[in-house]
C-alpha cells in the first residue's frame, strides 16, 4: 500500500513537471497557450495527487501493513470479510439494459427513450434497495 502511495505521488510530480514543460514549449512553438493539453496534463497531476492523498490517508488509518504487503503473512491472514457483496443480482443487467435503450433512443429515435427511462426508473431503486427488502431485509 505504501508503494502505491509513493508511486502516485511520483506520478503527480512528474505530470506537474510535464504540464509546465508542455505549457512553455507549446507557447514558444505556437505563440499562444494551447489550452487542451495544458488543462488535461495539469489535471492529470491533480488526478494522481488526489489518489495519492486519499490512499495515504487510508494507509495511515490502517495502523499497519496489509497482510498482502508482508513477507511473513499467511494466506488466511488475508482472508477477512472484504466487504458487502451481493450473492447474486439481476439488477445491474436490468439497469444496463435500460441505459442501453435510452442511448439507442438518442441515436435512432427519441420515441425509444421513454421506454428506457421507465426501465431505469425501476432498475435503479431496485438495485439500491435490493438488500433492504424481501430475503435480505436488515
Amino acid at each position: 500500500m505504501k508503494s502505491n502511495v509513493v508511486i502516485y505521488w511520483t506520478l503527480a510530480v512528474f505530470f506537474l513537471f510535464v504540464a509546465t514543460m508542455y505549457t512553455v514549449w507549446a507557447y514558444l512553438y505556437y505563440g499562444y497557450v494551447e489550452w487542451v493539453g495544458v488543462v488535461a496534463v495539469y489535471l492529470l497531476a491533480v488526478l494522481f495527487a488526489f489518489l495519492a492523498f486519499y490512499l495515504g490517508k487510508v494507509y495511515k488509518a490502517q495502523g499497519g501493513e496489509l497482510p498482502e504487503d508482508r513477507y511473513d503473512a499467511n494466506i488466511d491472514d488475508g482472508d477477512p470479510e472484504m466487504g458487502h457483496f451481493a450473492p447474486w443480482s439481476w439488477w445491474p443487467i436490468a439497469l444496463a439494459g435500460g441505459a442501453a435503450i435510452v442511448l439507442l433512443g438518442i441515436a435512432v429515435g427519441a420515441w425509444i427513450v421513454p421506454i428506457g427511462v421507465a426501465i431505469v426508473l425501476v432498475a435503479l431503486p431496485g438495485w439500491v434497495y435490493e438488500h433492504y427488502r424481501g430475503n435480505f431485509v436488515h
Partner: peptide, 26 residues
Amino acid sequence: PTGAPLINRPNVVAVGTIVWLGSEVM
C-alpha cells in the same frame, strides 16, 4: 489473525468511489 497484526482494511467501496472520482476529474 495470529500471523499479521490487526489492521483496518481499506473500505473497498470508499477507495473505489475515489478512483471513479479520479476519472471524473478527467
